[in-house]
Amino acid sequence: MDDRAITLPSPARCDNLRPVHPLTDFHALMINFNCTIQEGIVPEELRPALESELARISTDILGGNPVDVTVQWIEVPHGFGFRGGALSTTSAVRGEIPPGCEQETRVRLMQSIQDRWMEITGCTTDELVVSARDRRPS
């Protein structure tokens, strides 16, 4: 990414973020998702829709540009993931967002992701963990 690719949140959406310097702090505007799923639980054909919805929801709420949202998939092979000591069917969507987000905004983000993920995949609330943590300074 070069300086020309920087996209600042619109003023209406950036009041929940701490001030950023566009030239030295552009990395902080990026949003990354790490989706850990169990083998066979989230079919591959659903993943593009999930990726675009993660980008849409997060930039609708936090601002920024959907092209700056990255999504990484980690598939846990069958027999390698457990929850409560039993084989797991849980997906974990871990977001890394610009620091300084107000809690109300963070909850709205997590709730929106949860709702949409459940709609697309058909999973239950117990089969999904969503987090939105502040990006640590690099």
Binding site: T36, V76, F80, G81, F82, R83, G84, G85, S88, T90, A92, D126, V129
Partner: peptide, 9 residues
């Protein structure tokens, strides 16, 4: 208990 996840990589 149901909150504890363990994965092997």
């Amino acid at each position: 208990r149901s909150f504890v996840s363990v994965s092997f990589f």
